[in-house]
């Protein structure tokens, strides 16, 4: 960044451009400037980055902490769980050794489950978000730019996807995938379940973004700069990529930052409903499921995944809001 922010620290972002000693700034720079002044946004961004770091550094954390998410500590070591399978120490077994307590019955370390659980959730959600966004962009622009029959046809597919009962479909379809692709005497590989979930979440996720972008493209298609490009003989590809797409980055970025937390929750919800990852893979949704069954005896076990998911989703949503505000300061809420 070439411009020192101290030159106009107190002035509202929009008025910066009107200031007499204005320096030329790109929209990106302006956005960054506005974003940095938004305290909520910066804090949310920090939280989000923290979650990503935890996910990436999970093996390091595990090494430093000295535990892994797979060992059944409570079962291997007597004195941790009582006869009913609940932690004997208060607060779900929180101790200097098990920072967040231990899981009821199986006795795994809750902290490690949480840390590795972020990986599962984030990996699936990030990949699904990227795929969803890509498909949404392509389909949306094609529908909007081509118009006519193509638009009508794609529009109906979008309608269909949006009205589809996706959760029910995923619950019904996942076992079918396993049946089709996994030989009858083989275990369902973890990656297959992850890929299935990602694909299914993508398939049902792109329609919203596509419809939004189609609307944007429709409104821009007849604008002067597009007309001008057409007159000068620009190819459709050039028009799409050089004229239309740069104007669409704002909605795309906002949509995808809001999509990611939605997908994290969706993945957790599917695990909660029993079609997520298997028992051997740490997963927030499954932690929830177990926690709701045992909360009367071990409320602590419900609090950790609950609060973690809450913070993450709220932080990401607030980040999405801040990004939108930074891109589009005219919207006053």
């Amino acid at each position: 960044m070439t411009t020192p922010t101290s030159t106009a620290p107190e002035i509202d972002a929009t008025s910066v451009t009107e200031a007499p000693e204005a320096v030329g700034r790109s929209p990106g720079q302006l956005m960054w400037l506005r974003f940095r002044r938004d305290r909520t946004g910066v804090i949310s961004a920090a939280i989000v980055i923290f979650f990503f770091l935890v996910a990436i550094l999970a093996p390091v954390i595990s090494m430093v902490y000295g535990k892994d998410p797979y060992t059944l500590y409570g079962q291997d070591r007597p004195g941790l769980l009582n006869d009913f399978g609940y932690a004997m120490a208060p607060n779900g077994g929180i101790s200097s050794e098990f920072w967040f307590g231990i899981e009821p019955n199986l006795g795994r370390d809750v902290f490690m489950q949480l840390v590795y659980g972020i990986r599962t959730s984030l990996l699936i959600a990030v990949v699904a978000t990227i795929l969803t966004t890509l498909i949404g962009i392509v389909v949306g622009i094609i529908a909007g730019y081509a118009g006519g029959k193509t638009d009508f046809f794609i529009g109906r597919i979008i309608d269909l996807m949006l009205s589809f009962p996706q959760v029910l479909f995923i619950i019904a379809f996942t076992p079918v995938v396993d049946q089709l692709l996994v030989p009858s005497n083989e275990e369902t590989p973890v990656w297959l379940r992850a890929v299935t979930l990602t694909i299914l979440l993508t398939v049902f996720g792109w329609a919203g973004l596509a419809r939004l972008l189609r609307g944007q493209v429709l409104s821009m298609r007849e604008r002067e700069f597009v007309e001008a490009a057409k007159v000068t003989g620009a190819s459709p590809a050039r028009i799409v990529f050089k004229e239309l797409l740069p104007n669409l980055w704002t909605p795309i970025l906002i949509q995808s930052t809001l999509l990611l937390p939605a997908l994290v929750t969706a993945e957790a919800a599917l695990s909660f409903l029993g079609v997520g990852m298997g028992e051997q893979v740490p997963d927030w949704g499954r932690m929830f499921l177990r926690a709701t069954q045992v909360y009367q005896n071990d409320i602590t076990y419900l609090i950790f995944p609950g609060v973690a998911l809450l913070i993450f989703v709220i932080a990401f949503n607030l980040l999405g809001d801040s990004v939108r505000d930074a891109f589009d300061p005219k919207i006053k809420r």
């Binding site: 941790l80 769980l81 009582n82 006869d83 004997m88 779900g92 005896n297 602590t300």
Partner: peptide
């Protein structure tokens, strides 16, 4: 999270 305080589950060692 900070204030939550759940009692331990009494019981003989497993």
């Amino acid at each position: 999270l900070v204030g939550a305080c759940a009692p331990g589950n009494a019981g003989a060692p497993s």
